[in-house]
Structures are given as structure tokens and as C-alpha cells.
Design a protein around this nucleic acid. Structure first.
Lengths: 99, 99
DNA sequence: GATATATGTAATATTTTGATTACATGTAAT
DNA sequence: ATTACATGTAATCAAAATATTACATATATC
């Protein structure tokens, strides 16, 4: 994957208001959350939250894991933030372009 | 304009591969360029380059000015990079979310 | 006058994205 | 058995983004 492809994908993942709100929610809470928590907190449709979380995962902005509830035959999928660090300025792009 | 709206707009402007290529071209060349130069260099349709440049201008990633050619009754519209500096990480978003 | 270079934009078509609704499944508690 | 939560996804509709083609305009050069 080229630099342009990689950066485009990451930026695209973060560029949508709903997705940015999800990311900021996870950052603020500081702990992992599952789908219904996120949808309820942001007051958005659950299926919609799911769609956006998928895009965030594809962009490696968010990770998820399934957690079995203690002693119970139930599981929740928890979402957490990846360790992205996106920095873009004319100078940095110039450096990259000259590689 | 809220933080989310502002960031979304800027990221959206940079998120498209063609737009990112335009921005990297301007960064690399280090000097202003006009529409046809940009389209030729990137080997893309001129009208398409125009559309993307408009979006970059709306996101304040790129600026443009009309330059009268010396002694001639012609003018070119030159595009240059704005002074954006986008930095996004979980820590920075957490700070922002807690404001 | 024809050719090359430059601008701008309108119209159109295609593709992608975004959002809602609905259906299917399963566990736990009342 | 019903209610409350939780998951996942398919189907559909609406809206936005992307890309091409074409038209109009203007100047400079051959």
C-alpha cells in the first residue's frame, strides 16, 4: 500500500462526523465500550453505529475483541482505540514527497 | 463551527487520493502552480483537477490567487498550500473531548 | 484564420456512502 | 412464555461524491 493510499484510508475513516464522535467518545471514556453503549450514548441508530465502527476498524483507528461474560454463556464485542498518530503539514508532506 | 465539524471538513478535504496527490505535488515543487500544470503533471482530467482544487480551497488546505502576466492581457490562477497542521491522536482527542 | 494554451462551468452518468428498517439469533431474568 | 438486552446482517432508499464530456470565452503565436 502506497503512502497516499494509506493516509487516504486513515483520513477517510476519521473524516465523518459520526465516526469522529465515536472516536472522541472512546478517547474521553478511556475504557472500551460495546456497540449498544456507543449507540445509546451518541443517540444514534445501532445499525448505523455498527457500520461506522466497521469503517473505523478497516482504517485501523479502532480495534475490537469479544469478551465472554464471567461464568455466563454470553459475549460482548468491545471496541477500543488503536494507537494512531496522524500528523499532516506542508513540511511533512514535502519530506514524504521527496522520498 | 464545532471542533468535530471543523476537523471533519479538513480531513475530508485531504482524504481523497487525488486531492492528497495535488497537495503533495504543491509541497514537493515548493512553488505555486496553475490548473493546467497540476492536471498535466498528475495526468488527470483538467475539469477533475478543478473540482478537487475547489474542495481543497473550501477546506483551507489550498489558496489561490490570480496573477496577471507581465505586460500581457492574460491571467493565470495560481494555487498554493495553506498553512495547515493537522495532528490527531487518542491523547489529543481526549484533551479535546474534555474541554 | 487556424492552433495552442489558458480559464470556467454546466450537464450528465456512475459509483460510493450514509441511514433506516427489518429479520434472525441467543441468553438472562421475571 | 414474555420481556429486556445483546449480537449480526441483509435489503432498501436517499443523498453525496466522483469523473467525463462538452460548451463558452479569451489571448498569443504561426
Amino acid at each position: 500500500m502506497t503512502f497516499v493510499e494509506n493516509v487516504s484510508q486513515k483520513l477517510k475513516a476519521l473524516a465523518h462526523p459520526v465516526r469522529l464522535r465515536i472516536v472522541m467518545l472512546l478517547a474521553k471514556e478511556g475504557e472500551d465500550m460495546y456497540l449498544n453503549q456507543i449507540a445509546n450514548k451518541l443517540e444514534i441508530n445501532r445499525a448505523l453505529a455498527k457500520i461506522h465502527l466497521k469503517k473505523l476498524e478497516r482504517g485501523n483507528i479502532v480495534k475490537s475483541r469479544i469478551v465472554l461474560l464471567d461464568g455466563e454463556a454470553r459475549a460482548l464485542r468491545y471496541y477500543s482505540l488503536g494507537d494512531f498518530d496522524i500528523h499532516i503539514s506542508p513540511e511533512l508532506l514535502k519530506q514524504e514527497a521527496e522520498k
